[in-house]
Computed example of a mutant assay.
Amino acid sequence: MDVHEARSLFRELTERDGRVDPGELDAIWAVLPTVRPEEILGAWKGGEFDTGHPLNGMLEKAGWYGKTFHSPHDAKPLMCRNEAGELYSNTELGQGEASLWTVEFRGESTATMVYDGRPVFDHFKWVDEDTLLGIMNGKGVPAEGPFYYFYLERAPESGAAPGAGLGAGEGA
Rank of each mutant, 00 (worst) to 15 (best):
L55F: 08
A75G: 14
V31D: 04
M58I: 15
W126L: 02
R81T: 10
W44T: 10
E108H: 03
F124R: 01
P72Q: 08
V3M: 00
E12K: 11
E129C: 04
E104H: 12
A98C: 06
Y148S: 06
A164V: 09
L55E: 15
L25D: 06
V103T: 15
N90I: 11
A62W: 00
F69D: 06
E92M: 11
P142S: 14
E97N: 13
N56C: 13
T34L: 02
A111H: 04
Q95T: 10
A111W: 07
A43G: 12
G42Y: 07
F150H: 11
G46Y: 08
F147A: 14
D17W: 03
A6L: 04
E86L: 06
D74Y: 05
P77L: 11
G140R: 11
L133I: 15
N137C: 02
L78V: 13
K61H: 08
L59N: 06
E92W: 12
P72R: 06
R7F: 03
A160P: 00
E170K: 15
S89G: 11
T131R: 00
G63S: 12
G163D: 01
I40M: 15
G145W: 02
E104G: 14
E86W: 10
A160D: 03
E144N: 11
F105E: 15
V114G: 01
A43L: 13
L55V: 10
E15F: 04
H4Y: 07
S158D: 05
H123E: 04
H53M: 09
W64Q: 11
H70F: 09
D21A: 10
T91D: 03
P146R: 04
A27G: 06
Y65I: 11
A164Y: 00
S71R: 07
S89P: 13
W101V: 15
E60D: 14
E38Q: 12
E48G: 13
R36Y: 12
T102Q: 14
A111Q: 11
R154L: 11
R106N: 13
N90S: 14
D17V: 07
A111F: 02
N56D: 15
N137Q: 01
P72H: 07
A84D: 13
A98Q: 11
H70P: 09
G52R: 11
A161P: 02
R118L: 14
A168D: 10
W101C: 13
P156H: 00
H4V: 10
E108F: 02
E129L: 05
F124G: 00
G85I: 10
E60P: 01
D128H: 06
P54N: 08
W126E: 00
N90P: 12
Y148M: 07
T68V: 06
A111G: 04
D26A: 08
V103R: 10
G171S: 13
L55T: 15
E83F: 08
T131H: 02
A30V: 05
F69N: 09
W44G: 03
L93R: 12
H53Y: 12
R11D: 15
